[in-house]
Simulated assay, not measured.
Amino acid sequence: METLKPKRLGHMVLMVRDIQASCRFYTEVLGLQVSDWIGDKMVFLRAGTDHHDLALAELPADSPDRDDLPRYSRPGLEHFSYLVESEEEIERSVRVLQQHGVTIVRGIGRHGPGNNLFLVFKDPDGNNVEVYCEMTQIPQDGQHRAQVWERNLESFDQHRLERFVVPPPPHLVESKTGKS
Rank of each mutant, 00 (worst) to 15 (best):
M1R: 09
M1K: 12
T3V: 09
K7H: 11
R8H: 11
L9Y: 12
L9C: 08
M12F: 15
V13T: 15
L14F: 10
M15Y: 11
R17Q: 14
D18W: 01
Q20P: 03
A21D: 13
R24F: 09
F25S: 05
F25L: 11
L32Y: 13
Q33M: 15
V34L: 08
W37N: 02
I38E: 01
I38L: 08
D40N: 15
M42R: 11
F44R: 03
L45S: 07
G48S: 12
G48K: 12
D50Y: 13
H51Q: 03
H52N: 06
L54A: 06
A55G: 08
A55W: 02
L56F: 07
E58R: 01
L59F: 11
P60I: 04
D62S: 07
S63C: 14
S63V: 06
P64W: 06
D67T: 13
S73R: 05
P75N: 09
G76W: 10
G76E: 10
G76H: 11
L77V: 13
L77N: 10
H79T: 03
F80A: 10
F80P: 05
S81T: 13
S81Y: 10
Y82L: 11
L83Q: 12
L83M: 09
V84R: 04
E89F: 01
I90M: 08
E91L: 13
R92M: 06
R92G: 02
S93M: 03
V96F: 09
Q99L: 13
H100E: 07
H100G: 05
H100D: 06
V102S: 02
I104N: 02
V105W: 05
G107W: 00
P113Y: 00
N116P: 04
F121L: 07
K122P: 03
D125K: 09
V129I: 15
E130A: 00
Y132G: 00
M135Q: 07
T136A: 03
Q137K: 09
P139H: 04
P139A: 09
D141R: 01
G142I: 04
R145D: 06
Q147S: 07
Q147M: 10
E150P: 08
N152Y: 09
L153R: 00
E154P: 04
E154N: 13
E154L: 14
F156L: 14
F156H: 09
F156N: 05
R160F: 06
L161W: 05
R163V: 05
R163L: 11
F164W: 15
V165H: 01
P170Q: 13
H171F: 15
L172N: 01
L172V: 03
S175W: 13
K176H: 08
G178I: 07
